[in-house]
Amino acid sequence: MSKLVQIGAFAAVAITAVVVVAFRVATGPGVTVDASSIKPSQLASRAPALSFIDDTASDSLTVQSLPAGDERRHYKPTCQRTAASSSYLLCLNRSGNLLLPFQATLFTLDLQEVKTVPIEGVPSRSRLSPDGKYFATTSFVTGDSYAAELFSTRTVIFSTAAGSDAGLNLEAFDLIINGEPFRFVDANIWGVTFVAGQDRFFATAAFNGHRYLVDGDITKRTMVVLRDNVECPSLSPDGLRLVYKKRVEEGQYPKWRFHMLDLVTNTERPLSEDRSIDDQVAWLDDDTIMYAAPNGDAHDIWKLGIAGGKPELMLKGAHSPGVIPPRG
C-alpha cells in the first residue's frame, strides 16, 4: 500500500514538474514577435496606440491600438520601463553587462534601434520629450524604493540625435532658490517630464528632507525650485497641467495621493484616486491619466479622469503605459 502511495507521490511531483516546464517554455519567448520581422512603419500606421510592458508575456514591449480592445502585439525587447512619443519608443532593459546591468534603448516606431546608452543602477522612470529631441532615465543607484529612508537616484537627460551618447546628469545642474543658485551635493533628482519644443522639463529635486517641484532648463543647466512636496510630475499633452504624487503621510511607509497643479492659475487639488500609488502617471489625453497599481506580483494599468469619477481598470497584467499619438 505504502509502495503505491510512494509511486503515486513520486509520479505526481515528476509530472507536475514536466507540465510546468512545458508551460513556461511554451508561454515564454514563443509569443514574442521578432523585431526584424516587422515591416517599417507598420507600427506607425497603427497610431494612435498604447505602449506598455506586458507582465503576462515575460515583460515584452507591447503595443495595442487605441481605442483599447485590440489584441496585444508583443515585441522582442523585454523592458523594465518604457516610454513613447510620436516618433520613438524608449525601453529600459537588461544589458547583459554584469557591472552595468541596465541600459536604455531608443527605437524608432518601426523598432529600428537608434541608440543604446548604459544606465547606472536599477531603472525607475523613463520619459521621451513630445518633440522627440530628448529622453530621460531615472534609476536607483542605492536603495530600491522612493519609500525607503535612504536611497539615491541618478537622473540623466540624453539627446535622441545619433552620435551624442553622453547624457546630462541632472545632479550637475544648478538649483535656483529665490533667484540664488545653489549646489547640493546630496540632492536627489527624479521623475523628469518634458515640455514640448522648449528644451525645458519639470522634475523632482529632493534636498534638506524636502521634495520640490523644479522647472529645468536644458540649455542653461538650471533647475528653478517651484513648490514643496511634489514627486514624479507628469505634464499634460496641452502643457497646462501637472499631475504628481504628493506625500500625505510621512514615515517608514509613506502614503501618496495624486494631485493636479493647474499651471495657469497655480492652484493644486487632489484627484479622485484614494489609493497610495507609487508611479509617474502618463496622459492618455488632455483629460485622462494612466498609471500602474500593483496587483500581487504583477501590475494593472488604471485610468482616471482628472475631472473626477472613479478610477477604471484599463489593462490587466501591464505597467509603464505610454501613448504613441497620431502623427501630424
Binding site: 513520486f10 511531483v13 515528476a14 507536475t16 514538474a17 513556461r24 515564454g28 519567448p29
Partner: peptide, 26 residues
C-alpha cells in the same frame, strides 16, 4: 529553453528535492 526564467529553475530544483524526500520517507 525558457529564456532566463530563474523561477522555473528554482521550481524544478524544488521538485527534485521533493522527489528525494519521497524516496527517503518511505
Amino acid at each position: 529553453m525558457a529564456l532566463n526564467d530563474f523561477m522555473l529553475v528554482f521550481f524544478v530544483s524544488f521538485c527534485f528535492a521533493l522527489l528525494g524526500i519521497i524516496l527517503l520517507v518511505f
